[in-house]
Every structure is written in structure tokens, then in C-alpha cells.
Nucleic acid binder design. Structure first.
Length: 127
DNA sequence: TTTCTTACA
DNA sequence: TGTAAGAA
């Protein structure tokens, strides 16, 4: 599929998709006219990359764990390299802190909404 | 119309 | 990341 379609399927702007490709996060074939041709699988890959990026993981690290991403959301290292493990531990901690912050803000917003709406309806909250 | 590259804000 | 220009 072309970049526009991939963008439509993933919600990621073409600008970023080209950026991902530049950094080797995703790959694409080329049509005779120069247009990029992405595999169907790239849709899932882009979603995984987004998740990682949203979690605050730098492209540099993503490049390292990319070959360890299975078709789903598993991450495994056949041969753990100490440097990478250290980087991953740091990322894990950052994600933990970020998650706590997100939860905190979610509750604050949910609380505000409940009060503004008067009382009854408590919006859908997972936890 | 859509995409390409390069470059600036 | 968004947007612009010129070409295919």
C-alpha cells in the first residue's frame, strides 16, 4: 500500500511515516514512480512503534528492540546485551512514572467532570 | 490526485 | 512535526 493508505490505517501522518523509514523503523519497497510500497504488516508495526514512542522511548532504543518485536506486543531478547538491558531498565522506570502521572491526571479530570455535571453520571473509567 | 525530496519555522 | 515548492 502507499504511504497515504498506511497513514489512513494507522493515524500516523505521512510525514512521520517517512521519518520512521529514514530511521530504519519501517521498510518500504519502491514503485517505478518512486512511491513507497508498504507491506500490510507495516500497519501493525507502525502501531507498535507509536506505542513505544508515546511511552517516551527514543527512536534509538526502538531501533534496538525492533528485531525483538514479535507479531504482537511481545518483546524478547535472545541474546541480552548489558548496555541495552540498562537502557531498558531506565525506560521501564520512566514508563512507570509516566503511567502514575497519567492515572493521577485521569482521576483529577474524572473528578472535575463528575462535579461539573452535577452528580449522577460517572463516565466510563477502566479502574 | 498523490507522492517525492529538501528545507524552514 | 507542519508546511512549502517544484517535479513526476
Amino acid at each position: 500500500m502507499r504511504i497515504g493508505e498506511l497513514a489512513a490505517h494507522t493515524g500516523v501522518p505521512t510525514r512521520m511515516l517517512r521519518y520512521y523509514e529514514q530511521h530504519g523503523l519501517i521498510t518500504a519497497e519502491r514503485h517505478a514512480n518512486g512511491y513507497r510500497d508498504f507491506e500490510e504488516d507495516t500497519v501493525e508495526l507502525v502501531r507498535q512503534i507509536c506505542g513505544l514512542l508515546d511511552a517516551g522511548i527514543p527512536v534509538k532504543i526502538i531501533k534496538q528492540i525492533l528485531p525483538c518485536l514479535s507479531g504482537t506486543d511481545e518483546i524478547y531478547f535472545p541474546v541480552p546485551d548489558p548496555e541495552m538491558l540498562a537502557a531498558l531498565e531506565e525506560q521501564r522506570d520512566r514508563m512507570t512514572r509516566k503511567a502514575e502521572c497519567v492515572l493521577k491526571n485521569r482521576d483529577a479530570i474524572a473528578d472535575y467532570l463528575d462535579r461539573v455535571r452535577g452528580t449522577e453520571p460517572a463516565g466510563p473509567r477502566s479502574a
